[in-house]
Simulated assay, not measured.
Amino acid sequence: MERHSQDSASTQTFVRLDEVDRKILSLLQQDASLSLDQIADRVGASKTPVWNRIRKLREAGVIRRQVAILDPEALGLEACFFVLIRTSEHDREWAANFLQALRERPEVIEAHRLAGDIDYILKIQVRNARAYDRFYQSLIGEVKIHNVTALLSMEEIKSTTALPIG
Rank of each mutant, 00 (worst) to 15 (best):
E2D: 06
R3L: 15
D7I: 04
S8P: 02
Q12V: 15
T13N: 04
V15Y: 03
L17T: 08
E19W: 02
E19T: 11
D21Q: 08
D21V: 12
K23N: 12
L25P: 12
S26L: 10
S26H: 08
Q30S: 13
D31S: 07
A32G: 14
S33Y: 10
L36V: 07
Q38M: 09
G44S: 08
A45E: 15
K47V: 12
T48W: 06
P49V: 10
V50N: 00
W51D: 09
W51A: 15
K56H: 10
L57C: 06
E59G: 09
E59C: 06
I63G: 11
L70W: 01
P72Y: 01
A79W: 00
F82L: 14
F82V: 15
V83E: 00
L84Y: 12
I85F: 01
D91P: 01
D91K: 11
W94S: 03
A96V: 00
A96Y: 00
F98N: 02
L99M: 06
A101D: 02
E104R: 14
E104F: 05
E107K: 04
I109H: 00
I109E: 11
A111R: 01
A115D: 09
D117M: 09
Y120M: 10
I121L: 15
I121Y: 03
V126R: 03
A131Y: 03
Y132H: 13
D133F: 11
D133H: 12
F135K: 11
G141Q: 07
G141L: 06
E142D: 14
V143T: 07
K144E: 14
K144P: 02
N147C: 03
V148D: 01
T149F: 07
L151P: 02
L151M: 13
S153D: 06
E155S: 10
E155F: 04
I157S: 14
I157D: 07
T161E: 05
L163V: 13
P164R: 09
